[in-house]
């Protein structure tokens, strides 16, 4: 028995080298990555190529034929009030949600990390919005922000302040959705920051203290901020893409209204494609959306990455 095992053991390298000689080292590498390559082709590159092709046609779902119309779809976008509104709203939404959700998350993470107890509790509390379904939570928000029976306005009324129609007025709707977006993102960013903070060696704070960093601010500037750099870059990219992709809160709470005041990119794509069945036009907007996401990521990694210290 043990002889047989020893023989098999002795055989194994020879078998292996025979397999290698059939395809070569490079061939083996390709063979091993093949499943991933196939999945990538089928799931990502092929649909992307499909979208790319569709964007230059006037294809409508269910149609029997289509025409190549060149860049007509893109020219149409510039004249499309809904599309322009959705671009504008998405940008405003991002500029509202990204800094606020990152700033609040960082502040909370530092407070939680500094606290002696309750770390797990606070982490769970702030993470809850991330795991709860926005579509389900929308009911709660609808009630909270209801202009006449909502508790938010009840409080404001009690304080003698104005009672805006949070989701119904075009002046307030984007901010209301933004606040919901912040609420959704803070927990996620918080957990990432907490992980980043735990990775900072305690000794560095001792060294900073001995070196004369007296205020909490100077210790933050000397140690926390620079050492949190890699985490911060990651959090910015994640939050940015998450808020460019905002859809479910808009779809469930306002359907882009009133009067396109809360129309966002993803909802426009959805609307054009699945409501009006204008697949060609929808694909063109998707391309614009992809271009924006890629551009944002490129700028961030190029600009910020250079100033970041990794371990």
């Amino acid at each position: 028995m043990s002889d047989a095992a020893a023989a098999a053991y002795a055989m194994a390298p020879r078998e292996r080298s025979r397999a290698r000689s059939l395809v070569g080292d490079g061939g083996a590498a390709w063979l091993l990555t093949l499943p991933a390559i196939i999945a990538y082709l089928l799931m990502i590159l092929l649909p992307l190529a499909g979208v790319l092709a569709l964007a230059f046609t006037d294809y409508e779902f269910g149609g029997t034929s289509f025409r190549w119309i060149g860049s007509e779809n893109f020219a149409d976008m510039l004249k499309d009030r809904t599309f322009m509104a959705s671009i504008r709203n998405t940008v405003i939404y991002c500029f509202f949600v990204v800094p606020l959700s990152i700033g609040i998350a960082l502040l909370l993470a530092i407070l939680i990390e500094a606290g002696a107890r309750g770390r797990a509790f606070f982490r769970a509390v702030f993470f809850l919005p991330v795991v709860s379904l926005t579509v389900a939570m929308a009911t709660a928000w609808q009630y909270l922000l209801h202009p006449s029976i909502g508790p938010v306005n009840a409080v404001l009324r009690g304080l003698g302040l104005g009672t805006p129609n949070w989701l119904g007025s075009s002046d307030w709707v984007l901010m209301s959705l933004g606040m919901i977006g912040v609420w959704e993102n803070v927990g996620f960013n918080l957990v990432l920051f907490l992980a980043g903070l735990t990775a900072i060696p305690r000794e560095l704070y001792g060294a900073a203290e001995v070196d004369g960093a007296k205020s909490a601010w100077s210790r933050f500037a000397l140690v926390t901020w620079p050492l949190l750099g890699p985490t911060l870059l990651f959090v910015i990219i994640i939050t940015m893409t998450r808020s460019i992709r905002v859809f479910d809160s808009v779809q469930t709470l306002t359907q882009g209204g009133p009067n396109n005041a809360s129309e966002v990119l993803l909802r426009t794509i959805y609307q054009e494609g699945f409501h009006y069945f204008k697949f060609g036009y929808s694909a063109a907007i998707t391309l614009v959306f992809l271009a924006i996401v890629l551009a944002v990521m490129l700028v961030q990694t190029r600009l910020i990455d250079r100033r970041i210290h990794y371990g």
Partner: peptide, 20 residues
């Protein structure tokens, strides 16, 4: 009195240099 005001200097076991 806190460390910063004591006029002491310290060498830490893992050096605690600022990596950035």
């Amino acid at each position: 009195i806190r460390a910063a005001d004591r006029d002491v200097a310290m060498v830490f076991q893992n050096y605690a240099l600022y990596p950035h």
